[in-house]
Computed example of a mutant assay.
Amino acid sequence: MVQGNDTPTSEFLLLGLSEDPELQPILFGLFLCMYLITVLGNLLIILAVSSDSHLHTPMYFFLSNLSLVDICFTSTTIPKMVVNIQTQSKAITYAGCITQMYFLTLFGGWDNFLLTAMAYDRFVAICHPLHYMVIMSPQFCGLLLLLLWIISSLNSLLHSLMLLRLSFREDLEIPHFICEIKQMIKLDCSDTFLNDIALYLATGLLVGGPLAGILYSYSKIVSSICAIPSVQGKYKAFSTCASHLSVVSLFYCSVLGVYFSSASTHSSQSSAVTSVMYTVVTPMLNPFIYSLRNRDIKESLKRILGMAHTKGTIVLGLKM
C-alpha cells in the first residue's frame, strides 16, 4: 500500500467513538465489561449444549456455533479498542487493519448465515415434522456448516484482496473504532469502482439473500402455526421459534438501523456509534435471550451451576 506521495504507509489511525479525554475511562470500563459478559455468556451456552445430551440436536448445534462466532466476532474489535484507550494510542498497523477487516467480515457473514440455517431448521421442524430427522441429519448439518464457512471465507478474502490493490491518500484517519470496509474505501485516492461494485454485490447476495430466506421460512412457519387447531399447540410451536426470532430481529434491525442512520446523517462518527449495536450489543444479548426464553437451556445451566456449587462445597469441606 502506498500513499499519494508514493511513500509506504505502515498504519492507520482509528479515531474511535469519541476524542473527549474525559470519556475515555468510561468507554474503557463499559466496553471491557460488555466484552467479558459476551464471552462468559456465550461460553455458558456452548458448555450447556455440549454437556447435555438432550441438547445434541440440530437447533442447539447451530446455536452453539452461533455463540462461538459471537465470541470471535467481538474478539476482533473490542480488545483492540480497549487497548488503544488504555495506551492512549489510536494506531493500528496496515496488516492489523486488513486482518481485522477480514475476520470482521468473516464472522459477521457467518453470523448472518447461521441465523438463516436456524430459520430453516425451525421451518423443517414445524412444517415437515415427520421428515425432520431425515432432512436435518448430522451429516447434512455438518456439510451445511462447512458450506457456510467456505462462502463467508471466500467473501472475506475477496474484499481483502480488493483492498490490497488500492492506494491511499495522506489522511489515514478512520472515523470509526474498527477497520470497516466502507470507511477504508473512502480513504482511497484512486478509482474505487470495482471495490464499490464488489461491496454492493456481496451485500445484496450475502445479506439480502439470507434475509429473504428467513422471511420466507417464517411466512411458512406462521401459516403452519395458524393451521394448528389447539391454542396450546400454537403456543408450543411458537415458543420454539421465539428465541431465534428475537435474535434475528435484534441483529437485522441493528444492521438496518446502522445503514439508515449513516445514510441519513452522512456522518461517519454517527455510523461508528450506531455500529456498536450489531458489533457489541447484539452478541452480548444473544445468550440472555436464549437462556431466558429457552427452558432446555435454563435447565441445563442450572444443572451445570448446581454441579459446580456442589463440587466447590466438597472441596471447601475437604480443605477444612
Rank of each mutant, 00 (worst) to 15 (best):
L187I: 08
G108W: 04
F193P: 07
T105P: 02
K80I: 13
L144G: 01
C179T: 04
L157P: 04
S75R: 03
S137N: 07
C97H: 07
I197V: 15
H128P: 05
V83T: 11
I197P: 00
F123W: 07
S89Q: 09
T99R: 07
E173H: 11
F73D: 03
S190G: 15
R122Q: 06
A119I: 02
M81Y: 08
T93S: 15
W110V: 04
G96R: 06
H159V: 10
I181Q: 02
L187C: 06
F73N: 08
T99L: 10
L114M: 05
A91E: 07
Q88R: 11
I197H: 10
V83F: 11
Q183H: 14
F107W: 10
M184V: 12
I135L: 08
M162W: 09
S75I: 07
E173N: 13
F193D: 11
Q183P: 02
Y132G: 01
T93F: 06
S75C: 09
T87A: 12
Y102F: 15
G96C: 04
Y200N: 15
L154M: 15
P129W: 06
N195Y: 00
W110Y: 15
S167L: 06
D121N: 12
M101D: 01
C141D: 01
N155D: 14
L146R: 11
N84I: 01
A198W: 09
N84Y: 01
L161H: 12
H128S: 09
A119T: 04
D188K: 08
S137D: 08
I185K: 05
Y200A: 12
S89C: 12
L166K: 10
I85S: 01
H159S: 10
H176T: 00
M101A: 08
I135Y: 04
A125N: 03
A198N: 12
S75G: 07
M118V: 00
I178L: 11
D111Y: 08
G109P: 02
D188T: 12
M118E: 01
I178F: 10
G108S: 03
M184D: 01
L114G: 02
M118I: 06
M162T: 13
Y120C: 01
T76V: 13
D196G: 13
C179M: 02
R165I: 14
L114D: 05
E173L: 04
F123N: 04
N155H: 14
D171Y: 00
K186E: 12
H159Q: 14
Q86K: 12
Q139N: 09
S152K: 01
L148A: 06
L144K: 07
A117V: 09
L157M: 14
N195I: 04
T93I: 03
N155P: 05
E170R: 09
G109L: 05
C189Y: 05
L163N: 03
